[in-house]
């Protein structure tokens, strides 16, 4: 296991990217049962990631550096946008609407990418710097998540 918060969180981003790609693969294959499973796995992973940040990482960061509440608030708001898209995706999967699934996955993918680049470029390095001495404790909590 890694001993860096940034690496841990970035790896989780990559896992979500792969799971989203797997959903697209399932849509293209036309296998609705598999898509339903993949979509569930993907939603769980993505929402789980948001929860880790909103319940563990962001509060810890703000507790140490109160001025971080602006950026983390922004990130939480973007999580809200993505949660809404995930909901839309699950509805489209239930309705077996392939075009809608692809369009929503495409939108979600781009939102996730620009969101992640901000977290990986700014927020995670900030967290590493501020939370350096609590890394082990926080990583344990994130992994328990």
């Amino acid at each position: 296991m890694t001993d860096s918060i940034a690496t841990f969180m970035t790896d989780d981003h990559q896992r979500c990217d792969q799971l989203l790609a797997a959903c697209e693969q399932a849509v293209s294959g036309g296998d609705w049962k598999r898509l339903a499973e993949q979509a569930t796995v993907f939603s769980k992973a993505l929402i789980g990631h948001f929860d880790m940040e909103e319940q563990v990482l962001f509060p810890e960061l703000v507790a140490i550096s109160p001025w971080a509440s602006g950026p983390t608030g922004m990130m939480t708001m973007e999580h809200g946008q993505m949660r809404a898209l995930v909901e839309e995706l699950n509805e489209a999967v239930d309705e077996q609407d392939a075009d809608a699934c692809l369009g929503i996955l495409e939108t979600l993918h781009l939102v996730i990418q620009q969101h992640n680049s901000k977290e990986e470029g700014i927020l995670y390095p900030m967290a590493e710097e501020s939370l350096g001495d609590q890394t082990t404790k926080i990583l344990n909590r994130l992994q328990a998540g």
Partner: peptide, 27 residues
Amino acid sequence: WFHLQHRQLGSGRFDLRIPHMGSLLST
């Protein structure tokens, strides 16, 4: 999509669904 999303936050009209990219431009 991005700008409409922001307008939605400003307007509070969460009953409306913002069109996703696939319905904005036909592949």
